[in-house]
Amino acid sequence: MRLFGRHDAHEAPHPLRQIKLFSTLSRREMPVVQALRHERNYLAGEVVFDEGDDGEAIYAIVSGEVEILRHDGGRQQRLAVLAAGEVFGELALLDQAPRAAQARATADCMLVVFFRADFMNLLETHPKIASKIALSLARHLGSRLRQANAGQRQDGHL
């Protein structure tokens, strides 16, 4: 537990504009989302969340890199390496299913975290902002689906 002496306690909030999910928000809308964020620092090799965990939050990378891994039997399969500006764990916003893969920092990184309950509350209080984020999220999931389909075609599965 760290109750005192956080080195980043007095730093200005990191701009979210570089994160794709929030890139469509206006200057007036951004502070509403800023107020909901939690900032976390992870070291290279540290697990962000595990496969099978209850998904409660979505993560966005401010700096550093995160790899997404899936354990298939005894084998560990790397699904993606994500860099600054990208988001992961986004399915937690949509359903309460367990995490489908493990996320692990491959370099020291700073992440911003948004809790599902906050996002649901945003739908009630600021539906315009929430719908912009939801649209960005839908585009993001669409692109992931296209990438997955393309990958399967290349592997000869489709």
Binding site: M1, R2, L3, H38, E46, V48, D54, E56, V113
Partner: peptide
Amino acid sequence: GRRFQRFLARAVPNAYFERTLHLLY
């Protein structure tokens, strides 16, 4: 209220962070 929740969440180690947020909510 929200600022206080974030203040409490900051004190929690990364491994327990999501569960603790869930607890606070």
